[in-house]
Computed example of a mutant assay.
Amino acid sequence: VSFAGEDVKKGELVLKEGSFIRPAEVGMLAALGKENVMVRRKPTVGIISTGDELIEPGGRLEEGQIYDSNSLALSSQVAKCGGTPQRLGIVRDNKEELISRIQEGLSFDILLLSGGVSVGVYDLVKEVAEEAGVKILFWKVAVKPGKPTFFGARNHTLIFGLPGYPVSSMLNFENLVRPAIYAMLGRKEKRVQVEAYLESSVSSKGRRRNFVRVKLTRKKGEYRAVPAPSQKSGVLKSMVWADGFVVVPEEIDEIKKGEKVQVQLLD
């Protein structure tokens, strides 16, 4: 026997603005007789990888080539936080080809550009984006990894130039792009954090905010944070291995073993 008001009472707020509609929310809306509800449109996100060295996964690697992992990882990250990703392919280090593909990407709500954002001879992305009419709002971020990053806009499109190193690309997505997608969706969720004790000391130099990948273990009912063996920005395995990251503020040079830290979970 179910009593009136046992599930939902008259006047009770069931779903707040910005709620993510999962299967339970769909069922709840149906149970309330709601045939239609107002929702935010999922932002569309175009993704371009740049570099002469890149080829699609599945192809035969020649000397000096690597597989394009960034666009696939970014595509998964976009989908996971509620956007609609579309990979726009690999663009060579050629200004004409790059400007054409960027102009195509400006039809999306967000455009992600991976690679070519540093200061080398073949790092053309920022320069070409400006030629395509993108207003650069900042370039270079005081974080580690991920310093060579830019953000700009043109009309209603937000443009993020992310580093070519895979860890830098993924972490700057989490810290910069994900909040932008959430804002477009009206979502207000914060990243889940847990307290843990550091299993080995970590250092941070250069006055940049350092995002240290860690794995969580349990010991005597408490979480322990084990730093990844390598914190290099090209070691993608560290992102597979890690449960989250510890943020070391730019004014701190070292956090010693045994100190309590906040671990921001990646999932």
Rank of each mutant, 00 (worst) to 15 (best):
M239I: 11
D243C: 01
Q262H: 00
P227S: 12
V212H: 11
K219F: 01
V235K: 07
K256W: 11
K220A: 11
S230A: 02
P227W: 07
S233K: 01
L266E: 06
D253T: 14
I252Q: 13
M239F: 13
E251W: 10
F245Q: 09
E250D: 12
L216N: 05
W241V: 12
K237F: 08
S233R: 03
G221C: 09
G244M: 08
Y223N: 06
K215T: 07
W241Y: 15
E254K: 15
M239A: 09
P249T: 10
K232D: 09
K220P: 00
T217S: 14
E222W: 07
L216E: 01
M239V: 14
G221Y: 04
K215R: 15
W241T: 12
K237E: 15
Q262N: 02
R213Y: 01
E251M: 12
V248A: 13
Q231K: 06
V263R: 09
P229Y: 13
K219W: 00
Q231P: 09
A242F: 00
R218I: 11
M239L: 13
Q231H: 07
K260M: 06
V235M: 05
G234L: 00
G258C: 06
S233Y: 05
K256L: 14
D243I: 01
R224P: 12
D267Q: 05
D267M: 06
P249F: 05
D253Q: 14
G244R: 09
S233A: 06
G258Y: 13
V212R: 09
Q262D: 04
R224H: 11
L216S: 03
E254S: 12
